Amino acid sequence: MEGDELSAPHIFSNKKKEQTEDLLTSREQEIAKWVYENKQRAGATTERFKDAQCLYLAICIEDNVYGVIAIPVDEYTLDSFEYSILLSVINECALAMENKKNIMEKEKISVLAKNEQLRADLLRAISHDLRTPLCSISGNADMLLNSGERLDDITKHQIYTDIYDDSEWLINIVENLLSITRLNDGRLKLKFTDQLLDEVIAESLRHISRKHEEYQIVTECDELILAHMDVRLILQVLINLVDNAIKYTPKGSTIRICAMNENGKAKIQVEDNGPGICDEMKPHIFEMFYTGKNTIADSHRSLGLGLALCRSIIEVHNGKLVLEDNTPHGCIFSFTLPLSEVTLNE
């Protein structure tokens, strides 16, 4: 079956190809089509199309037809016992196809339900969680427009800072939304190049939230590690991981970014000494739209996209994003990248 029509016939025979060509005539295929449409047997040994080369039987359960079987009939005719055995085999085939169809339909319904839930979660997240920064930007802009001349320079600077921070937060969310949607749809074009890890880490820190000045960010990178990556996506991973550490750790915390050559791969770790993640949250931490119970220092709620996006990006690099506990407290997010095949000479 191909859609709602019979596919091209397949012959299973111990005879040579030229000896079975008379079974593939347009006349024989028309009889097979009639059997499929009418769900009745026809052909040789029956009253309908008795001049056919084969006996044609529909593989069906009730009104669902899954195919037609053709049995060449020469001088030998099936007796009643053989015919009943044949019908039993055909019924078993039809039942197996029915079960496969039901499984595929259930999987399709499950995928549709999951996609619908994702859309509902996304709408809920956007309508609820993006409203806070948008309202803040609107309110601050209104204050500057209507009362700007009565505000002192320190207050104005704080308002400008708040508008900038809220805008940066929104831009980061939109970039994550676009990237994870394109990744899931297979529309994101990857561009792999060889990059020095210390340069990639340094570039990522130039895009980190301005709040990083209130934290101690330390980098430790082995020299001349050349990794194969889509540098735009890996920058997004590092930015998300460091921003995540900033969000969930108190001011003054230490955030450490380490890069090393381990077991023939480039390994990158982002560590913090914050409160860590409780055990009940760990199994869900990489799920899309999962935000957990942790409180973010700047009062913004996360859409729960950052870590899900990071995991998807690392997976397309044939790696895995892993969460571990730091000692004595905090988190370690680590992932691996393939090393470049190019050898660097120091």
Score class of each variant (00 low, 15 high):
I257F: 04
C258F: 11
C258Q: 14
C258A: 14
A259H: 03
A259K: 02
M260S: 14
M260V: 07
N261W: 09
N261D: 12
E262P: 02
E262N: 04
E262W: 13
N263M: 14
N263H: 11
N263V: 05
G264S: 08
G264T: 07
G264D: 04
K265G: 02
K265E: 13
K265C: 05
A266I: 03
A266K: 01
A266V: 05
K267E: 10
K267P: 06
K267V: 14
K267D: 03
K267G: 03
K267S: 11
I268T: 01
I268S: 04
I268Y: 06
I268P: 01
I268D: 03
Q269F: 12
Q269P: 05
Q269T: 12
V270H: 12
V270G: 08
V270C: 13
V270L: 06
E271N: 06
E271P: 01
D272W: 11
D272F: 13
D272A: 05
D272Q: 07
G274V: 01
G274Q: 04
P275N: 12
P275E: 06
P275L: 02
G276Q: 02
G276A: 08
I277E: 01
I277H: 02
I277L: 04
C278E: 11
C278A: 06
C278M: 09
C278S: 11
D279I: 08
D279S: 10
E280R: 07
E280N: 11
E280P: 05
E280Y: 13
M281S: 15
M281R: 12
K282H: 09
K282A: 05
K282N: 02
P283S: 13
P283K: 12
P283N: 07
H284F: 15
H284L: 14
H284V: 02
H284C: 11
H284T: 07
I285C: 09
I285A: 07
F286T: 01
F286D: 00
E287L: 02
E287R: 10
E287P: 01
E287F: 03
E287G: 02
M288N: 07
M288L: 15
F289K: 00
F289P: 00
F289C: 00
F289L: 01
F289D: 00
F289I: 00
Y290V: 00
Y290P: 00
T291F: 02
T291L: 01
T291M: 03
K293G: 07
N294D: 09
N294V: 07
N294C: 07
T295K: 15
T295S: 09
T295R: 14
T295Q: 13
T295N: 10
I296L: 10
I296H: 14
I296P: 06
A297T: 05
D298R: 11
D298V: 02
D298C: 12
S299V: 10
H300Q: 13
R301M: 11
R301T: 03
S302H: 08
L303P: 00
L303S: 00
L303Q: 01
